[in-house]
Design a protein around this nucleic acid. Structure first.
Length: 453
RNA sequence: UCCAGAGUAGCUCAAUGGUAGAGCACGCGGCUGUUAACCGUGGGGUUGUAGGUUCGAGCCCUACCUCUGGAGCCA
């Protein structure tokens, strides 16, 4: 029976009759025996096997090159040499699949740019193996976090006919041929349909029934964004809470990010160690800081004052009523507060129609969580639950309430204060791993002009 | 989409406008309880694409393509 290398390496006693299966990372030959290092993706570490001349299957050894898949049976013994605790004394080796000399992965370092061009093989590298193990583990942690707090997981639709959700350009979904603008009523859904840019509006309907809900699924933006932080397809987490205000929303966002950092530190230590060594030297101390210290919270108006009084010259001037530029966000998180920072109560002009208006008449209950190095990782708000205010906001933003009749209905029937946020899973992963490019934390990235694999 | 920078061997990079090179990888030989092994040796190129300038272009000019960094949009 096959044993994963992860559990082999964790053994506390020598063991007879161990079978491992995986891919050769490197082989070093001696006259009387060979060292084979095997990796099966179950963990970062390799298992070193020692294959004596004459071991059954030994004649295939020349073909067991980097990248080849093999099976090794043997006895687990303490390694006499430095570098590893255990090694496997092979009693039988078997070649399963060849990897000829064109195998592109080498034993030495590759750039992430090159590895992106071989996205089908890059999970076999140390870096990407670690990234995708962490991704999997944190996806689990997301569900654990919400389920433990009695949030209900809701599958909001991928295809939507909500015309302008205000979150960006949308991908059109159609079965029409020729001019797809001409007769949308003859299209598959009888109207124009798109890939979702957010499950929030649908999520609100479920929060106004099941109290606390969350979504966790793919989201699509057709923006022509070409940055290290944007992808056309990404995974978003959107909690929504009934009977909750902005304060509770900010509390949840902060607790969530802290919980994810804690989970990563506690369950992905080996992989994080790789990132700390090769990607981001500050990673572990930053994660500890995030776990230990409360986030800074500052109203938008105050943030603007801080930036204006900073004496720092910005490329774009700081002005009340304008969105904070990347350089402004970076100044706040990286130089002024040196901490994750939640900015809240933004001017209503620069925020969407569904955000709740404050009593000052000028601001809405929006909140963005900004983190050093990445910028916005959470965008959220307390929603406008008052029917008259919502309709007024829609007029202000030049939207037709008829297009949102079911959303408006929520304010007609048992309306409640409620709040939620959207969090980009990949941006969270970037923050927790130190990986600086979003294309390197998603298995097969979709960006403008690129949908290979 | 805008502003910079880059594109030379499988990979990472050199090369005053004058015969395209190194390290690693790969092949072969040797050595060794090895650890990104080591020593010797060999093969490997339409210099991103298309034009142009020049006696001569990897190098200069133009256009396009791709990638990287920054910006905008956002998560």
């Amino acid at each position: 029976m096959r044993t994963l290398i992860k559990s082999v390496l964790l053994e506390s006693e020598p063991r007879q009759g161990v079978t491992v299966k995986g891919w050769v990372r490197t082989r070093r030959d001696s006259k009387a025996f060979s060292f084979l290092e095997l990796n099966d993706g179950s963990c970062l570490g390799n298992l070193q096997a020692v294959v004596d001349v004459g071991t059954p299957g030994w004649e295939q050894l020349p073909h067991m090159t980097t990248g080849a898949s093999i099976v090794i049976e043997g006895n687990l013994v303490p390694s006499p040499a430095a570098g590893q605790k255990w090694e496997l004394r092979a009693t039988r080796v078997e070649l399963v699949g060849l990897a000829d000399t064109t195998y592109p992965l080498q034993k030495k370092g590759h750039t992430t740019e090159f590895l992106r061009t071989i996205a089908h093989l890059r999970p076999r590298s140390n870096l990407y193996g670690a990234v995708f193990r962490v991704r999997s583990r944190l996806a689990y942690a997301v569900h654990q976090f919400f389920q433990e707090r009695d949030f209900v997981y809701v599958h909001t639709p991928i295809i939507t006919a909500s015309d302008c959700e205000g979150a960006g350009e949308m991908f059109r979904v159609t079965t029409l041929k020729g001019n797809i603008e001409e007769k949308p009523e003859t299209d598959f859904f009888g109207k124009k349909a798109y890939l979702t840019v957010s499950g929030q509006l649908e999520g609100e309907t479920f929060a106004c029934a099941l109290s606390n809900i969350y979504t966790f699924g793919p989201t699509f933006r057709a923006e022509n964004s070409n940055t290290a932080r944007h992808a056309a397809e990404f995974w978003m987490i959107e909690p929504e809470m009934a009977f909750c205000d902005l304060q509770g929303d900010m509390d949840l966002g902060e607790a969530f990010i802290k919980a994810m950092a804690k989970h990563a530190v506690e369950h992905c230590a080996e992989d994080l160690g790789l990132f700390a060594k090769f990607v981001d030297k500050e990673l572990l101390s930053r994660l500890q800081f995030v776990i230990d210290r409360p986030f800074v919270r500052v109203p938008y108006t105050e943030a603007v004052e801080i930036l204006k009084k900073s004496g720092h010259t910005f490329e774009f001037p700081v002005e009340y009523g304008q969105n904070l530029q990347s350089e402004h966000e970076r100044f706040l998180t990286e130089r002024h507060f040196k901490s994750p920072t939640t900015v809240f109560n933004y001017p209503k002009e620069i925020k969407p129609f569904y955000m709740r208006q404050n009593d000052d008449g000028k601001t809405v209950t929006a909140m963005d969580v900004l983190v050093p190095g990445i910028g916005e990782v959470i965008g959220g708000a307390q929603r406008e639950e008052r029917l008259d205010h919502l309709l007024e906001n829609m007029r202000f933003h030049k939207l037709d309430p008829k297009d949102y009749w079911w959303y408006v209905d929520l304010r007609r029937y048992g309306s409640v204060p409620h709040a939620g946020f959207g969090l980009g899973f990949e941006r969270l992963l970037m923050f927790l791993t130190g990986i600086p490019n979003i294309r390197d934390v998603i298995p097969f990235s979709r960006t403008p002009g690129n949908a290979d694999f």
